[in-house]
Nucleic acid binder design. Structure first.
Lengths: 158, 158
DNA sequence: GATTGATTGTCTACTAGGAAACAAAAAAAT
DNA sequence: ATTTTTTTGTTTCCTAGTAGACAATCAATC
């Protein structure tokens, strides 16, 4: 029952114990690993996955409100304000405050923004269909399915 | 083939398009979701999941080197320096520079550190065996298995 | 043994993201 | 109509984590 717990000193072997069965731990590691791949292959295109997803969603949902975007992408409102502001400065996104409700901000891609997204979307989806090391195609699909289910993305998002 | 792309304006419905099939996107969302749960339930115990995992691994591998710890937990060396320094200040971790190699730092839990970990480990593992909303027990186990495989944690780590 | 190169941890400066207070507008209550 | 409450975005300040230069030590080569 008692683990040995010798000095670990010079070795590279590490016992992770229960952490290996912790969803939080595994998901954190998985994100770092997956994002490393993204950066390695997509960094040259000027798109960090988080930021780019914002552009994609605006492209798919013209006029989407900033707050809705934030909640669906699980980005804090304070943060999305900065992102959108930066996109606006780059001329990729246009903000519009409608007369019906002057609190909200509706977002659309500019022509340049549309071009920016279109140019990169293929590369991204191509990359996304790749199967990560260590998994088979079937396992990858299963993983995607389970994550969707965990996130409640199986049915249309509302 | 062509999506409709009406103005999204006042609705809460958002089309995420291909992002729903993107491992990077899903894993990012999953981490935020899972960590929210951790914080909600474990925040009161003074343990953020990342930091606590460092303590757990030191506890399981007394004398583990700082660099090894960093690479296994996918934390940058610059960052783990700060973490360990903070733990040292709190009296939870002891650093030792061995004579055989005076570059490295070997880490152990102090008595207080051991107590700190022991007090919280049960809560953590209890929490970790919980099944997240939307998944069955079997699905949760499968998800864990797939993540382990993705990360190469199926065989003993070396 | 001296020199060169690799490892390991640390430091400084920077970026991403978050918490909390705030202001403006809309909605609800009186 | 006026007041109160809620929603939405913004601002300021703060923390977590990173990038890259650095110093110390060890290993390898001449």
């Amino acid at each position: 029952m008692e683990a040995t717990l010798e000095r670990n000193g010079a070795t590279d072997e590490v016992d992770l114990g229960e952490l290996c069965r912790s969803l939080g731990f595994l998901v954190r590691l998985a994100q770092i690993r997956v994002f490393e791949n993204y950066f390695a292959e997509l960094g040259q295109y000027d798109m960090r996955p988080g930021e780019f997803s914002v552009l994609v969603v605006i492209g798919l949902n013209p006029g989407v409100r900033q707050g809705v975007l934030a909640s669906k992408l699980m980005i804090k409102r304070a943060h999305i304000t900065k992102l959108v502001r930066a996109f606006e400065d780059q001329g990729l996104v246009a903000r519009r405050i409608p007369d019906e409700d002057r609190r909200v901000v509706e977002l659309t891609l500019t022509r340049a923004g549309r071009a920016f997204v279109d140019e990169r979307l293929d590369v991204l989806t191509a990359f996304d269909t790749k199967v990560p090391d260590g998994l088979t195609v079937g396992e990858r699909d299963q993983l995607v399915l389970l994550l969707q289910k965990l996130l409640g993305l199986s049915e249309p998002v509302r």
